[in-house]
Design a protein around this nucleic acid. Structure first.
Lengths: 241, 241
DNA sequence: GGCATTTAATTGTCTGACAATTATTTTGGC
DNA sequence: GCCAAAATAATTGTCAGACAATTAAATGCC
């Protein structure tokens, strides 16, 4: 009988063992792992192999390393920013590598984003509303590049999801919104389409201020429909070129 | 003047360079990277350093390696399963490491999950409804362990989000649902609470079958409220022990 | 006590070697 | 000529030992 699994390398096995220890709570945030030399002896491998295992864990932000005496590998505190950055990388690659239609990606993104409207209308703060108005100002500048317009759009939507006042929700939604940015960057925003989008952004802010969930939902639905329209026109332009 | 950034290691720099090349599309799925020896020469470092860089990329599923002649490192096709597994790892750690209240995590999870009800009611298939009924059967077994109950619960909710017929949405939602599992496993499900949950699961299936979005939403809201209640009683039990 | 120096522990990197794996090529038998 | 077996070459996986760089702690001097 042959092994179905293709026999992981030693460095992968050691990385798995340590990862499991961290996820299961046998190693806590801030704990110091044994030194590379000790780990090598414990697992009966060379230091180079241990180092490859540690690099794997570092790539997932599970550990961080410090040099010098009393340095070493420490279980990392995973911050929201690090977690979001990783989620964005993964999601962006997934969208880029799987021939996903713009429409499907957009549908998913707005479906997810609508999940925060009820909480956002309830909890929105003046500070976040001001941030959103500020981004609308930025978007209204006539000489703005497409990239800058997209970046401001992302900032606007991040403020929107932050209105829900739930960090976990913000993490998931920000990841889903940011992962769309490469796809959004394919779109050329004419003055006409920018005006349309900005109008809907204004409607969203007004709706939040008035705690009118239904009007925010309507604006988001309109934004989704309009974005898909823009995406389709890009695809048509490509098909005929 | 001191460098604000703590000077990344060579292996991290090389990993970043290759990662950027992949994300930017200069390296396409299936492309073979130069051999470790060639990369070492190109970057003017030793093979060990290159290997550490490649292990970092492998940990993010960006590349896979094959041994033997004409083997090497290849740009990996990121599948939905790999992407979801990574997202679950990241999200699970985020929830576990940031002293997040059960209530906040639960609120986020159900807010996200509700985002699929409208699409799910529209597109649900008989096959997925059957899967959900099957899991309800499993959950009704009287001698089921708490872990098995939780696992079946996750399978039920995954089928629910799959009903929306949008792979991208399924990826995001499945990640958010699965990341809750460690928290759910802290809860002891009595026969009484299991019955309550199963009733709500039945209501969800009936609602989907009848394409009655509102009733599915109500059932999910009730499930959220009930789950938070269960979580709070666990916390109370801990506080007084 | 305070400051400069030394020391020890630890990660980061290099070098060279050998084992294991695998597609290709060569060889040998018929 | 054809097929199977063996050799070959390319490549990753692992090891051992070395040295450089970094940093906290210990030491010694005043």
């Amino acid at each position: 009988m042959k092994n179905a699994e293709p026999e992981k390398s030693l460095s992968a096995q050691i990385a798995d063992a340590i990862r499991t220890a961290i996820v299961d709570g046998r190693l806590l945030v801030g704990d110091r792992l044994p030194s590379e030399a000790e780990l090598a002896e414990q697992h009966g491998v060379s230091r180079a192999t241990v180092r490859e295992a540690l690099k794997r864990l570092a790539a997932q932000s599970l550990i961080r390393t410090e040099r010098g005496a009393f340095g070493g590998a420490f279980v990392n505190h995973l911050s929201y920013d690090e977690a979001r950055a990783q989620q964005v990388t993964t999601s962006t690659l997934l969208l880029g590598m799987n021939a996903i239609s713009f429409q499907v990606a957009c549908e998913a993104r707005y479906a997810l984003e609508r999940s925060c409207t009820s909480l956002a209308a309830e909890r929105r703060t003046d500070s976040l509303l001001a941030t959103m108005r500020n981004e609308i100002e930025t978007q209204s500048a006539p000489d703005l590049s497409d990239e800058a317009f997209c970046a401001s759009d992302v900032a606007f939507h991040r403020a929107l999801v932050d209105c829900a006042g739930n960090e976990v929700l913000s993490y998931h939604l920000a990841g889903s919104v940011e992962a769309m940015q490469p796809l959004m960057n394919m779109i050329t925003f004419t003055a006409r389409s920018r005006a349309e989008i900005i109008d809907l952004h204004r409607a969203i802010v007004s709706g939040l201020e008035a705690r009118d969930v239904a009007s925010v939902d309507r604006a988001l639905a309109a934004l989704e429909a309009y974005t898909i329209t823009l995406g389709q026109s890009v695809l048509r332009a490509r098909a005929t070129r």
